[in-house]
Computed example of a mutant assay.
Amino acid sequence: MRLLTRNAPACHARLNPPADPAALRRAEQETGRPLPEGLAAWWRAADGVSPTRPTVGETPFRLFPYGCDPYPVAEALTRRKQYLRSLRDTVPPPLADALEGWLARCGQDRAGTYYPHDATPLWLPQWLPVAGDGLGGGLFVDLRAGDQYGCVVRHGTMSHGPKPSWPDIETLLAHVADTLEELGGDGDHRR
């Protein structure tokens, strides 16, 4: 947090206070999976950032790569529900059972397994969005079991990355720290 305070004070000012432990328990209950320790530690330090409203022509500094800001726990859960509801709402009723079967099958795959050749779905129940770009895309953590449990994947409005961008939140945060170190004293650089 010191790097953020020193090198990106405007972003540091947007950090929310630590998440309520009850919110972390709710996230585990709703996803049916334990949170990766790095993600839980991040949320215990700061419950995401408050939204920013840039002025015309301004590009706000985003804390995470790909123009993303970390979500508070409640926002992550809300986004997850929206993605799942949108997926289910767009499937024709005769295909609903097939979709549920597909979701169940994919939910049993190992974390880090993606489906670039399948037309659907856009979201699995074991994926938890952790950051957004303000345009419908962002980053999610894969909570399925396996050696890539907790990996961080980029997603857009129509698809997700073919592989994880980072093996875990800790590696993503180390990348952010390196970026902040490179900024030096001017925290208003654009990426």
Results as ranks from 00 to 15, higher is better:
residue 100 E to P: 12
residue 119 A to N: 13
residue 124 L to M: 10
residue 58 E to A: 03
residue 69 D to L: 03
residue 119 A to L: 15
residue 85 R to S: 03
residue 96 A to M: 04
residue 144 R to C: 14
residue 109 D to L: 05
residue 114 Y to D: 08
residue 50 S to W: 14
residue 116 P to C: 09
residue 89 D to G: 02
residue 83 Y to T: 03
residue 111 A to N: 07
residue 130 V to S: 06
residue 86 S to N: 12
residue 145 A to P: 14
residue 108 Q to V: 14
residue 91 V to T: 09
residue 125 P to N: 08
residue 49 V to Y: 04
residue 92 P to C: 03
residue 120 T to H: 11
residue 127 W to D: 14
residue 69 D to A: 01
residue 100 E to G: 05
residue 130 V to L: 13
residue 74 A to C: 02
residue 132 G to W: 03
residue 130 V to C: 07
residue 122 L to N: 15
residue 101 G to V: 06
residue 90 T to M: 05
residue 73 V to E: 02
residue 81 K to A: 00
residue 55 T to E: 03
residue 118 D to G: 13
residue 127 W to A: 10
residue 100 E to S: 06
residue 116 P to T: 09
residue 124 L to A: 13
residue 105 R to M: 03
residue 88 R to A: 09
residue 77 L to Q: 01
residue 91 V to P: 11
residue 106 C to S: 07
residue 63 L to A: 06
residue 102 W to K: 04
residue 137 G to V: 15
residue 62 R to W: 01
residue 121 P to I: 05
residue 104 A to Y: 09
residue 54 P to T: 09
residue 133 D to V: 11
residue 141 V to S: 06
residue 56 V to R: 08
residue 60 P to D: 02
residue 53 R to A: 00
residue 98 A to Y: 13
residue 96 A to E: 04
residue 62 R to L: 08
residue 92 P to S: 05
residue 88 R to K: 05
residue 138 G to S: 12
residue 98 A to F: 08
residue 124 L to F: 10
residue 119 A to R: 09
residue 127 W to G: 12
residue 106 C to G: 04
residue 113 T to G: 06
residue 95 L to F: 14
residue 103 L to H: 10
residue 61 F to G: 04
residue 123 W to E: 06
residue 117 H to N: 13
residue 137 G to W: 02
